[in-house]
Nucleic acid binder design. Structure first.
Length: 494
DNA sequence: CGCATCGCTCCTAAGAGCGATGCGGTGCTTTAGT
């Protein structure tokens, strides 16, 4: 298709497509539904941007973060593509109104799953000719949709209201069952599926045992003293992020900052910017940091605490070495860590007694629908729990099932979801604590891939990593500290 | 579960010591209006 290349040059001044881009775009142009799992940096956004500009009508892009939308719009505008906008709460009433009453003059509209549900918005959009319904970072559907941001589960209904335009779902990591979940939630009929390998061959993979928190701190500092910079340290809580960044500043010569969702937007922007510009060596963060971060030269990603599933893990380590140069993923494991992720999962769901209480309260008030506000004010629900409960309550009622069984339905959902989440956590932990098989191989297997050839610097089990090789081949003398061992090794290698 | 924090106790005071309590991650949205 010479035509595509013509438009590629016209709008983006590129002369050639990256791998798979062209095939995906061709399928999108034929109005097929497409699911594409592409490594970060492989030009996912172009897959909807180019068709959006060529086709008649409006392309809607569902995006999980306001910052992502803003970046994308800005980038497009810099390329001279002006007929694009992000519709979200950053806008004033006037701006929102302007966009809604001029929808036909836009080619691409970025919007969150929450905003698109708003009555006005949906009403106006439904009157448009929607050429494509794109879902960016589609793993959010599976990762966030069921509990945290249930509006993600409503996307297939939204798409129906919009006249069922063709859909393109894009993500960087989804194991087969997550993929199925996404396809099912979006109700994609007969989709074309593209999958890149998730293998990042320039990233070597390490798991380092530590018997307790004290030892982990020590190992962390030892690593930081020898690892090339910059890098990221993932932790599980906000407080830990702050404490570790202070510790690193005190005990090393490095600059370190923390980053988490509890900080103001200004602080987050500032710290992110400093890191992107190379002014910070180490960033200690929760899982708030990452999506949309495109820093090419991150040399290591160190997990001080491990995430709840291998999808998150692969996403997080994938932030290292985007420039293709050798990089390292290190995970510090300690038995003490096992409690925290379990607590997090439990905490995602309202407690059974709350559910009982809420059901009684709602019936007492003879309400057909329950509202989040009611649950928070009358039943003491947290916001996310209230939204979770409301979503499934309404879902049940919309399908006009027996009213008295809604409580059992919600309890069943919770049971099922906890089961799913604990299974994923178990798979993560099995991967961490299995010291027999190549870590890369097991990771690939989880994502339904077969390992073809191993990179030279594969993983700690394969003994390919210089850090690991030293530890395994030469049994270190007892008096030697981690620091000495690593330092001597690095001097040897360089 | 494990840790940090809170408030109580002691009673000359301040601050140490105690048990009880609660917190722990991810983000969107949100009024009025020519």
């Amino acid at each position: 298709m010479k035509m595509l290349e013509h438009y590629l040059y016209k709008y983006f001044s590129y002369t050639t497509f990256k791998e798979k881009q062209q095939e995906i775009i061709e399928e999108v142009m034929t109005k097929r539904n497409v699911f594409a799992m592409l490594a970060t940096g492989s030009g996912k956004s172009l897959c909807y941007q180019l068709p959006a500009l060529i086709n008649e009508g409006l392309t809607i892009v569902i995006s999980p973060l306001l910052a992502l939308m803003e970046n994308q719009v800005q980038e497009l505008k810099q390329k001279g593509i002006k007929r694009t906008a992000a519709y979200n709460s950053f806008l004033s009433f006037k701006e929102k109104k302007y966009i809604l009453s001029n929808l036909s003059s836009y080619k691409i509209l970025y919007i969150s799953p929450e905003s698109i549900q708003q009555h006005d918005v949906l009403y106006q959009l439904a009157k448009q000719n929607i050429s494509l319904f794109a879902v960016d970072e589609a793993h959010c559907i599976s990762q966030w949709g069921h509990e945290f941001r249930t509006d993600y589960l409503k996307l297939s209904n939204i798409r129906d209201v919009l006249g069922a335009p063709p859909c393109l779902a894009l993500t960087a990591s989804a194991a087969p069952e997550v993929q199925n979940d996404i396809l099912q939630q979006l109700q994609l009929k007969d989709p074309v599926i593209f999958c890149d390998s998730i293998d990042r061959r320039n990233i070597s993979i390490e798991v380092v045992p530590a018997s307790n928190e004290e030892e982990k701190k020590k190992v962390l500092i030892d690593f930081l003293n020898v690892l090339p910079m910059p890098g990221m340290v993932y932790v599980s809580s906000r407080k830990k992020a702050e404490k570790l960044s202070i510790m690193i500043k005190e005990e090393t010569a490095l600059t370190a900052f923390s980053y988490h969702g509890g900080m103001t937007q200004e602080d987050r922007n500032l710290i992110q910017q400093q890191f992107l510009e190379g002014e910070t060596n180490v960033i200690c963060c929760t899982n708030a940091f990452g999506m949309g971060i495109n820093k090419p030269d991150i040399r290591f990603v160190l997990h001080y605490n491990y995430p709840k599933d291998l999808e998150s893990y692969i996403q997080e380590i994938g932030r290292a070495g985007r420039d293709g140069f050798p990089s390292t993923a290190i995970l510090l494991r300690s038995n003490e860590d096992k409690i925290f992720p379990r607590r997090l999962i439990e905490n995602e769901f309202p407690a059974e007694n709350q559910i009982n209480e809420a059901s009684i309260e709602i019936e007492k008030n003879a309400q057909q629908k329950c509202s989040e506000q009611f649950l928070m004010e009358r039943c003491g629900f947290e916001e996310t729990h209230a939204r979770f409960f409301t979503h499934y309550w309404n879902e049940w009622h919309n399908h006009s099932h027996k009213l008295n069984e809604v409580k059992e339905y919600i309890l069943k959902i919770i049971d099922k979801r906890k089961g799913w989440k604990f299974t994923k956590l178990k798979q993560m932990e099995e991967w961490i604590w299995n010291d027999d098989t190549c870590r890369r191989k097991r990771l690939l297997e989880y994502f339904g891939e077969k390992q073809l050839t191993k990179p030279e610097q594969c993983c700690g089990i394969c003994g390919a990593d210089p850090l690991k090789k030293e530890r395994h081949i030469k049994k270190p003398s007892k008096n030697m500290t981690w620091k000495d061992r690593l330092a001597s090794l690095f001097h040897q290698c360089s």
